[in-house]
């Protein structure tokens, strides 16, 4: 039987439904994923509110509070943790468990992995929107249409982070546990970006940290989300995020192939 576009569509639907069902089964994971950014928003931002003065910067049209500034970065933080965690479990599971079932599909493996990345991204968006709703309580109030405009930006960022996660966990054997990924990938990516401080502030304190921040794709992801949330479009941020997503997807799919790992597996 030849595979038609309809077969591909049913396959994508199935993978998405499964991710959604798993998501609603694991409510505790959902709430714990929200606790982290909310702590940053409520506790960390409260402390820094007085210490930092934020000038009027794009895309904002007026002076903003620190909570308003870090909210887009925290949205990306949710996607970052989800993307890395899911990708790591995909690699860990590839020779057993659910990933092995996935790989038994007759459809091409690149397609299955892309479906999986997009499904994980879509489910992560539910957490981001829950976070944005709670953020209303601390006066993070983007324009109403911003909630819609940010959707494609969040999706692109989530796919990019999932692809980076898949790439890292497939190619770098030393990072095969989450603690390693957290210390060497998540934290540097998050802190060395514009998520917590605007780039000009970074430049004021250290030129080389500023330079690293501008080379970090997470900076562009945060700026893409920040601009979209306030109904602006940042072309550079969009291009960098899109290009990073594409490049890492290609290498991640190439690296993920369990056939590549066969030389190092266990005999059975």
């Amino acid at each position: 039987m030849k595979m038609t576009p309809a077969h591909y569509w049913y396959c994508f639907q199935g993978i998405l439904i499964r991710e959604y069902l798993r998501f609603i089964q694991q409510r505790t994971r959902f709430f714990s994923a929200l606790v982290r950014p909310l702590l940053w928003l409520v506790v960390f931002a409260a402390g820094f509110r007085a210490a930092l003065g934020i000038a009027i910067i794009e895309p904002y049209e007026t002076y903003i509070t620190y909570e308003v500034y870090i909210a887009p970065g925290l949205c990306c933080m949710i996607l970052l943790f989800n993307g890395m965690q899911s990708s790591l479990s995909m690699v860990y599971d590839r020779e057993m468990g659910s990933m092995r079932v996935l790989l038994m599909s007759p459809l091409p493996r690149w397609f299955l992995l892309v479906c999986k990345l997009i499904s994980i991204a879509l489910v992560s968006l539910l957490q981001v929107y829950a976070f944005l709703l709670i953020a209303l309580l601390v006066d993070v109030e983007p324009p109403l249409w911003g909630y819609l405009a940010v959707l494609p930006a969040l999706l692109l960022v989530a796919v990019m982070l999932g692809a980076i996660g898949l790439f890292i966990s497939s190619w770098i054997k030393q990072l095969e546990n989450f603690a390693g990924v957290m210390n060497f990938v998540i934290f540097p990516m998050f802190f060395l970006s514009s998520a917590l401080y605007p780039l000009w502030k970074m430049q004021e304190s250290s030129e080389w940290i500023y330079w690293i921040c501008t080379a970090n794709p997470f900076t562009y992801a945060v700026e893409l989300v920040r601009h979209a949330l306030y109904l602006k479009f940042d072309g550079t941020a969009c291009s960098v995020t899109l290009a990073t997503a594409l490049i890492f997807s290609v290498f991640a799919i190439k690296g993920f192939n369990p056939q590549r790992a066969a030389g190092g597996g266990k005999p059975g």
């Binding site: 049913y10 499964r18 089964q25 468990g97 659910s98 299955l112």
Partner: peptide, 28 residues
């Protein structure tokens, strides 16, 4: 294929597990 270790999703129902597999084979 039936694998040595169970590959069913324990938190999903039997029907949901089977529907997932059917979709992977492109069944509507």
């Amino acid at each position: 294929v039936v694998f040595q270790q169970s590959t069913l999703d324990l938190d999903l129902t039997v029907q949901q597990n089977l529907a997932y597999h059917a979709s992977l084979h492109g069944l509507c």
